[in-house]
Design a binder for these strands. Structure first.
Lengths: 179, 179, 179, 179
DNA sequence: GATGAATGAGAATTCATTCAT
DNA sequence: GATGAATGAATTCTCATTCAT
């Protein structure tokens, strides 16, 4: 199944959403169109699976960063998140668009929310106790908003990565320290 | 032309993206399909116009808020932004999806960025001098990220509006005060 | 009315049949589309008028050639016919196609048939008495077939004009002399 | 694929060009519209294929005539050509019109040119040596012009077939003998 | 399980024509 | 008489999906 999503991702990346037809996905995946339907019940399911895979990869990357024994785990998380949003932007944009259209937007915040919760539990000192839900919401969505802005090709691309990283960290820390 | 976008918006809102066909837009707008094509060269153009209109309305609403002589202009802006993202979510979601897919994402940050710049100039004390570009970027995208999360139907809906408003304000002030 | 046909001809010549819409004809003719319908009842009528105009011009050109006091009237006629089919080929091709499709093909032979008859009457010696109808038919259509081949972009373009002219004359004379 | 062209031909013949829609072709061919597009990339391609088929049939018929061991091969060729242009005139007219409009006119002369060349090689005595290119051009286009006139519904229909045949033969022989 | 030819509902778009101004 | 915005019937073509092999 992975190779099918790979094929879909490649099409999205290289040819854009309009080119993403089930027939082309099958062809690029090297299987028959009928076979594709053995893996996914319909086109939408394929798209959703693709989006979920990207989200899962985000989660895995963040978790891996968290598991690294870094002196500044929060910084590493932020760096990881920003970097992932700098890579493969065309694909991420399309996937986000599709996902949004499908009403699955909330899932997109999952990796960040999940990892934040994990971080809060694992290193309570870092975030200063476990912040209440509304603070977690504000924090995760704020950071995610910044990461997304990198995807959407805005002015963010001009800001040097480490500078942006520093600012994001400052944002997080200032907010947490302002209780 | 406005009535055409109105019709398109209504369809998006009530019937979803799949129902948005040029024929239905024309019908709901009370005009012939040929007439529709007299106003917009193709379907995509209609969608883009719709998205731009929403952005323009955001800008106008924020500007109006800014022009109100409020004791706490920043708070009013935040409230306005959050409220707009709580209203008409289905439509906003579709429009955002379309816009993203069309690669016009950056435009979405425009209202907030523009108004922030305006605010910085008009009430320098509020933001503490005019923050440098990367701080403006971080701030606007962070706030926008929070607002968008409300659209995407997340957990944010459960947070009482004024509570969220307070948190967002705290985020902004903490960040600006942490230089 | 002439300026309308002029506009239609220009479109056919420069942009091809697919571009020939009534709206474009009106625009290029510098009149409103409604006005166009004051001159011609429908598109077909415009096309037919255009074809007839070309045929009439052919007739006029041939008649003018016949009226010239040339030592070899037959040669002059042939030359005129061939030359006209070498000019403005794109337009002539489209007009012939349209005309054929409209079932008005026979009209195309009119100029040649008419002038041939005229020639037979005016200079009986040249054609050797007035040939019977079937010979007139064979002769006119044969010559017309050669002229048309020049329009259709065939190998005929490579044959030097005066050489072709000589051959056509030889064809006519040989046929007429072989009774 | 043949059955699709058959269907298209039938429509052209019976209902005229205006009725030739892709949907009707599919329906008359007894296949789905999608299937039609599996055979031909678009409508134009179908039309071109149809025209080519008619030309190929002409070629085959002429070749068959040439292969018959007739005492007068030239006469048989002429007769075959003329007869083919007397049959199925409505269809031939439409096909010629389409073909002309598509700029593929030259192909129409192919059967006659090809067979003439063959004849010249096979029976040199008949045409008196192989005539030079410009004579071949004149001869083939002249004969073709006469044949086409039969399609275009002219006065030619009134001439008794064998009489016309004789005249055409006389034209050919006179021309070839006049060197 | 894999295949891919066949399907056809449905979508976007065009353009000849009308008619109120 | 001129105009051109409005019309909508009609057409081409796409593509997700099926199912017989």
């Amino acid at each position: 199944m992975g190779f099918i999503l790979e094929a879909a991702a490649r099409i999205l990346r290289e040819d854009g959403r309009a080119a993403l037809t089930t027939n082309l996905v099958a062809e690029r995946a090297g299987i028959g169109i009928g076979t594709l339907y053995g893996y996914f019940p319909d086109k939408e399911a394929t798209l959703i699976a693709l989006a979920r895979r990207m989200i899962d990869e985000d989660t895995a990357a963040l978790r891996a960063a968290l598991d690294t024994d870094d002196a500044e785990p929060l910084r590493l998380l932020v760096r990881t998140l920003l970097n992932r949003h700098r890579d493969d932007r065309a694909l991420r944009r399309e996937v986000m668009s599709v996902h949004l259209g499908q009403g699955l937007g909330p899932e997109h915040a999952r990796p960040v929310a999940e990892i934040s919760a994990l971080l809060a539990r694992r290193a309570p000192g870092l975030l200063g106790r476990t912040p209440p839900p509304e603070q977690m919401f504000v924090l995760t969505r704020a950071v995610l908003g910044i990461a997304r802005a990198l995807v959407e090709d805005g002015d963010g691309a001009e800001i040097p990565p480490d500078r942006l990283e520093n600012e994001v960290l400052r944002l997080i820390r200032a907010y947490l320290g302002s209780a």
